[in-house]
Simulated scan of single mutants.
Amino acid sequence: MNHAQLTALGRALRLLGEHGEALSTQTPDARLHEVKADLRRALDLLDETVTTAAPATRCPEHPNGPVDESAPDLCLLCETRRRAARRSEVDGAYASYARRAAEATAPAPSRYGVREDRPQPQQRWLPELWNGREWQLCGTPRRDRREAELFITAQRRAPRAAPAYRLVHEFTDYEVVRIWGHPVRTDIEPMGNPPMGNPPLGNPPLGNPPPGNP
């Protein structure tokens, strides 16, 4: 469409708009014949301006392409492309699933297996108490640190609480992350006697005196 065609077509359409606004029940037939002539003039201008066929689809990429009534844009080419993409997506998902299943059932190439065949390390939180000589486990290992700390808090409030508690993080190795109280080594021998191997203070050890002493 060149500038002259655009100007003429715009003038004809504006004139038709004025005719539409002026229509009423008292419009004479002579005026209707004038409207008819202006309509034909506008149609002729449109025929001269439009050089392509009317679009058969609502697709901006293929307006005159083959029609598919089931497609949202009536375009057979685009609908075929969309169907192929959906089919490829489904087939690809199935292929990925089949590949993972085959890998899961395949034997390990080594007697020790590969990294994916070995179980992943899991972390636990171990509540321990001080029994006077060493640390010992005082509850079930927890998977949650907060839950283990709440358990130790309840144990410390018990009537026969231990002198000290601690929380140990177990994850491939052991790491002490927190200690409650003071783990002091105490005497657990009966009648208050010192442990074997530690003679009382002030008593000389049994046996021969060292050389040089009378």
Rank of each mutant, 00 (worst) to 15 (best):
residue 5 Q to N: 04
residue 15 L to Q: 13
residue 16 L to I: 09
residue 19 H to Y: 12
residue 22 A to E: 05
residue 26 Q to S: 05
residue 33 H to P: 00
residue 33 H to K: 07
residue 38 D to S: 12
residue 38 D to A: 15
residue 38 D to Y: 02
residue 39 L to N: 01
residue 40 R to T: 03
residue 42 A to I: 06
residue 42 A to R: 05
residue 44 D to H: 08
residue 44 D to R: 04
residue 46 L to I: 14
residue 47 D to R: 15
residue 47 D to F: 03
residue 49 T to Q: 04
residue 53 A to Q: 14
residue 53 A to G: 12
residue 56 A to I: 02
residue 57 T to S: 06
residue 58 R to F: 06
residue 59 C to N: 10
residue 60 P to Q: 08
residue 61 E to R: 14
residue 63 P to A: 15
residue 63 P to R: 14
residue 72 P to C: 02
residue 74 L to W: 00
residue 81 R to P: 03
residue 83 R to D: 00
residue 85 A to H: 11
residue 91 D to M: 09
residue 95 A to K: 14
residue 97 Y to I: 09
residue 99 R to S: 15
residue 100 R to T: 13
residue 102 A to N: 07
residue 102 A to T: 05
residue 103 E to N: 12
residue 116 E to C: 01
residue 127 P to S: 06
residue 128 E to P: 13
residue 129 L to P: 05
residue 130 W to G: 03
residue 131 N to T: 06
residue 136 Q to E: 11
residue 139 G to R: 01
residue 139 G to V: 02
residue 151 F to T: 01
residue 156 R to Q: 10
residue 157 R to L: 13
residue 158 A to Y: 03
residue 161 A to K: 03
residue 164 A to N: 11
residue 169 H to F: 00
residue 172 T to R: 07
residue 173 D to C: 09
residue 174 Y to L: 08
residue 177 V to P: 07
residue 178 R to L: 01
residue 187 D to S: 08
residue 191 M to T: 02
residue 193 N to L: 09
residue 200 P to I: 02
residue 203 N to H: 09
residue 204 P to F: 09
residue 211 P to R: 12
